[in-house]
Each structure stands twice: as C-alpha cells, then as structure tokens.
C-alpha cells in the first residue's frame, strides 16, 4: 500500500485536503494511506512515506525536505488546487509522482 504524506505548518489546513483526497481515493478504488502532519514531525513521519507533498505555504522548506529524503519524490501542491481543496486532482498528481 502506498503511503502519501502531506506536510504544512500545523497539519491543520492540510488535514482538510487529506479528507478530500481519501474520499477521492475511495471513489477511484486506489488503495493508499494519506495523512497530514506538521513539518516539526518531518523526520519521524517522512521516513515511511512513498511520496511527500508540501502545502504551498511551506514551499520555502522544500530544499530542507529534499535534503532530508533525497530518494523520495517531493512536490509542492499547486496553490489553486490546494485552496479549492481539489482532493482528486492532488491525489492524481501524487499517484503520477510515484509512477
């Protein structure tokens, strides 16, 4: 099972998006685990991730994340998709990243 992990400042607004993504995953029949955390938990929670997505508000931390996990796909979520809480589109993006 693929493990998609999202990070933002407190993990709060991102968890809104996560619930939309989970609903989309169910609808599309994709078997994956999706969760949101605060960037403070990067080392602990990023380790098991197959794919790391960052909220656009913490995009300035992307370098730090890629240095911590050079082998993992890392991306910043598109601002509009994030704001409109487009769970399906973000999920498709994540699935593409994991190949």
């Amino acid at each position: 099972m693929k493990n998609i992990v999202l990070f933002c400042a407190a993990g709060m607004s991102t968890s809104l998006l996560v619930s939309k993504m989970q609903a989309a995953a169910k609808e599309m029949g994709v078997d994956c685990q999706i969760a949101a955390y605060s960037l403070n938990e990067l080392t602990a929670k990023g380790a098991d991730a197959d794919c790391i997505l960052l909220g656009p508000q913490v995009r300035y931390q992307k370098d730090k994340v890629t240095t911590a996990f050079p082998d993992k796909p890392v991306a910043v979520i598109d601002m509009r998709l994030y704001g409109m809480m487009k769970g399906k589109e973000v999920l498709e993006e994540a699935l593409k990243m994991m190949g």
């Binding site: 933002c8 709060m12 607004s13 809104l16 656009p56 509009r80 704001g83 809480m85």
Partner: peptide
C-alpha cells in the same frame, strides 16, 4: 481560524 482555503483559493 484556518485561512488557507481562502488564501490559496481566491487567491
């Protein structure tokens, strides 16, 4: 007090 949907959605 969660403003991200507006900040990024309006944007």
């Amino acid at each position: 007090s969660i403003s991200e949907p507006i900040v990024f959605g309006v944007p």
